[in-house]
């Protein structure tokens, strides 16, 4: 479509010259590095505790606990939280002013008098945001693989890499749905600050309020961690907690993300394709909002009263 790539290119250029945006990107990258560091030190601590238990058991002649199964990708599991928290805010930041800013600055009128279809403006912006978010996630992937190799001493194998790539694709869909939401709000509002505030309220509900409500409705069992020697609460889904969880894409993203990053031992060895099939409803739930919100934005931009 005419003009699409130029609009996308302009979005890229303008975003990477925005100091606030660069700051959020830096925070996201730093948090992802910290996440790998925390994950690896936790795993190392668990291993050390196990080794200490073995040493004690060997000395005292007591029963030696079974060898723990280590799922290496689990050291990346905090990434899920960072995408929910910082990734979504970054996407909102990219989108909340994307349309209204053009309207306010008069550049929307300029673009609309160029020989390009109106839809190009929305699709170009989506493409630009997609490139920015994709680039950020690719850099995160490379960083994480490098750190993973550094901390574990081995490069992730094909299956592990595939899990991380699929996770990042789903993270991409999750972040794009926030961008598409912010862009749609931006087409509807005449005040950028109002759009930002509205999207932040949506983000708070999706990321914190609903997940906590769902969490509060779970049933809890207790389990003893025989490696660390601690007692842990094991949450169990109830019908109500599951139903509430479906109100929040964050809950579904965390669920799929945790499965892919081997944070849940029950699903840690399942093949990626089977995992995706089993989670197809959740994956669709993360993709569909972007599509619907984009269609709504396209409908909005076709209206005469967008100026």
């Amino acid at each position: 479509m005419t003009g699409l790539k130029y609009i996308a290119g302009k979005e890229l250029k303008a975003s990477f010259r925005n100091k606030e945006f660069l700051l959020i990107i830096a925070v996201f990258l730093v948090m992802s590095i910290v996440s790998v560091y925390i994950g690896s030190t936790t795993k190392n601590a668990e291993l050390k505790a196990y080794e200490s238990i073995i040493a004690t058991a060997t000395t005292t002649g007591t029963e030696v606990p079974t060898t723990p199964v280590i799922f290496p990708l689990a050291i990346l599991k905090n990434l899920v939280e960072y995408v929910v928290m910082i990734g979504a805010v970054l996407a909102i930041f990219l989108g909340y002013d994307a349309f209204q800013g053009e309207r306010q600055g008069g550049t929307l009128r300029l673009m609309l008098t160029k020989p390009i279809p109106r839809e190009s403006i929305i699709l170009g912006k989506l493409l630009g945001a997609g490139l920015i978010i994709g680039l950020l996630l690719t850099v995160t992937l490379l960083f994480n693989i490098a750190l993973f190799a550094y901390y574990t001493g081995v490069f992730p194998d094909f299956v592990e890499t595939l899990r991380v790539v699929v996770f990042l694709l789903i993270a991409f869909a999750y972040m794009m749905s926030f961008y598409a939401g912010a862009l749609y709000v931006s087409t509807k509002t005449r005040e950028s600050s109002y759009g930002f505030l509205l999207m932040m309220v949506v983000w708070i509900f999706i990321s914190f309020v609903i997940p906590q409500l769902a969490e509060s409705q779970k049933s809890y069992a207790y389990a003893i961690n025989n490696i660390a020697g601690t007692i842990a609460q094991v949450p169990g889904e109830t019908v109500l907690s599951s139903a509430i969880g479906w109100l929040s894409p964050a809950v579904q993203f965390k669920s799929v993300g945790s499965d892919l990053l081997q944070a849940v031992s029950e699903t840690a060895t399942i093949r990626v394709d089977r995992l995706l099939v089993a989670n197809i409803a959740k994956v669709m739930y993360l993709i569909v909002p972007s599509v619907v919100l984009t269609l709504l934005s396209l409908r909005e931009v076709k209206k005469e009263a967008i100026l």
């Binding site: 003009g3 130029y6 302009k10 250029k13 303008a14 009128r109 300029l110 160029k114 390009i116």
Partner: peptide, 27 residues
């Protein structure tokens, strides 16, 4: 060609980058 009232253009971009972008949209 069109010049709206009080157009602010893209402040973060240079004059050439603004013109390149809008020129390309004008084919």
């Amino acid at each position: 060609g069109y010049l709206p009232e009080n157009v602010s253009l893209y402040g973060e971009l240079t004059v050439r980058e603004n013109l390149r972008f809008l020129g390309r949209l004008s084919e």
